[in-house]
Nucleic acid binder design. Structure first.
Lengths: 140, 140
DNA sequence: TTATATATATCAAAGCTTTGATATTGTGCC
DNA sequence: GGCACAATATCAAAGCTTTGATATATATAA
């Protein structure tokens, strides 16, 4: 009301993210995954045995949100969870073979999108966008 | 796995949007609103009597999602809904005085954030970011 | 007039997210 | 040893979002 919608950079970022999420959702769906599940598996494959809390920090969500995602992944047999040796308050999470396979399929589809985006810019423009977005984030 | 996370421009956009949403959420919360509620009221104030379906299109969400948002706004007395004259299949939605007041408060807080973001860039950089983000969206 | 297509609203199911609250366990300090 | 602190997990409530299915009403075309 006090600022024209046209000038609000936030709206542009939101629209870009919305489109990106829609495309990624469709991409990882081919592997039977949701975007948050894909993100969790992506961290998990490089951090076997990571705790739910640590996973949540990596994915920038709350532990409660991650619990829900892990519960669904567990229900689909893509991960396994078991008690930690000495830290009895921790649960170790590991990928199953099915989980690894789903991640492989999903990532292939997701990378196609990232490559399509990258191809829309020159190397200089990519650097510029990276810089502007980083400053955008820091400005908030 | 096939592409370094560093190079994925999508991740940067997602992080920027995440921070933006967190900041906006905190901002509009001072008016007792959520971000989707704020977005709906922002469209509503310029389109009195708009249908839920049209509102959903403006906000880029599904009609079902908008129904939930409107139900909560209605429950808080910020909007009113009534039947349309001849289109009996439509429900007209209008802001209440309380809704207008909440929107005014929320928008003031939201504009502060947008101004802070805008201030982090020169006019040329803003144009550049606008251009790059638009092409980003179209590339998907 | 009848049939088709379109637009509206709404119910239901599944999933993600947040804040808030609680219990258990491990760590460090006294 | 005992106590405060931090980290983990989990329950609960509220809200947003999607896809899919269904019912009603308007508009258009045969």
């Amino acid at each position: 009301m006090d600022m024209p919608a046209e000038e609000r950079l936030g709206l542009l970022v939101k629209r870009a993210e919305q489109r990106l999420m829609a495309a990624k959702h469709a991409a990882v769906k081919t592997a039977g995954l949701t975007v948050p599940q894909y993100a969790a598996l992506l961290v998990l494959v490089d951090n076997p045995g990571i705790s739910a809390a640590a996973l949540a920090r990596e994915c920038l969500v709350t532990p409660q949100a991650m619990t829900v995602v892990l519960k669904n992944l567990l229900g689909h047999g893509l991960i396994e969870r078991g008690p930690h040796q000495w830290h009895r308050t921790m649960l170790e999470t590991h990928l199953t073979d099915a989980g690894r396979e789903a991640l492989r399929t999903a990532d292939a589809a997701a990378v196609v999108i990232e490559r399509r985006i990258a191809a829309a810019f020159t190397p200089d423009e990519r650097d510029s966008l990276r810089d502007l977005l980083t400053r955008f984030t820091q400005a908030i």
